[in-house]
Design a protein around this nucleic acid. Sequence first.
DNA 1: CTATTTGTTTATCC
DNA 2: AGGATAAACAAATA
Length: 265
Amino acid sequence: MPELAEVEYYCNQWRPALDHKVATVYLNSAKRVFRGTDTDALVQDLEGARFVHAATHGKQMCFRFGESSWLGVHLGMTGKTTRTRERATSDPHSHLVLEMEGGDSLVFTDARMFGRILYTNTNTTPDWWADLPPEILTPEFTFEWMNRFLDKRKRSQIKSVLLMQEAFPGIGNWMADEILWRARIRPHKRVEATDLDQREHLYERVREVCADARRVIAPDWGTPPDAWLFNHRWKDGGMCPMTGKPLVREQIGGRTSCWSPSWQS
DNA sequence: CTATTTGTTTATCC
DNA sequence: AGGATAAACAAATA
C-alpha cells in the first residue's frame, strides 16, 4: 500500500511519542522482516533510550533513539506503523512493539513481510539513510538530473522507470499511473520515444503528484478528489475523468497499470 | 481452488 | 559492464 505520502502518514503515527523513553522492546527475531538485522543490539540499545527523531525519505523511514541508535523501517507492500494505548498485542503480524514510558506502544505490523526493519548503532549517518537519491520535492531533484536518468533507461517502458527508487524515491504504482495520466503519456511508451517537451511536462507532473499526494493523504489519509485518476483506477470498468471513456487495466513490467487510451498517447 | 495485490531483491539473459 | 526482464518472497482477500 504505502507510497511517499502514505509512508509520511505512518511516520506521523509514531511522532506523538517523541521525547519519551522506550521502556520495553518486544520482537521475534525469526521473522523475515528482521533479515540481516542485529535484533539483540536493537533490543539492548533501545530499551531506556529516548525517541528523539522521526523522518521519511521516499518510502524509507528513519527513527532515532538516544545518541547513536538508528532504526530503519520500510513498509514493503502491507506494512504499517501504528500507535496504541493497549498493553498486550495478540496480533500475529505485529513484529516489533516499542512500549514507551507514558503508556504508548509503537507497533510495526506487516502481514506479507515484504517490509524490513534495519538497525544501526553509529555516531555518523548509516549508509542506508545517507546514500539515498534526492527527494522529488527538493531543489536537488532537477529536470537535468531526471533527464540524465531517463537517458540511461532509453529502452525501458516509462512506467517501469518511474517505479525505480534510485531516481524517483517514494513513487509507487498508483502515483506512477497518476503521473503518466496527467502527462498524457501511455505507460508502455519507451523512454527513447519521448521528446523534450514530453519530458519537461513529465517532470512537472512528477512533482505535482508528489505535492498533491502529500497534501491530501499525509495529514489524515484523506480521499483524493474524483478529478484524479486515483478514484477510478482500482477495479475494472472505471472511466477516465477527462474523457469519460473506459480506462484499461493491464500488466506492464509486471505491475497492474491503469491508463486511458482516449487520453494518453 | 484460483487470481490478485499501492514493493524490493535476485537471477538470468542480452 | 550494465541494462532489461522475470521470478521470488508471503499472506490476505475476492
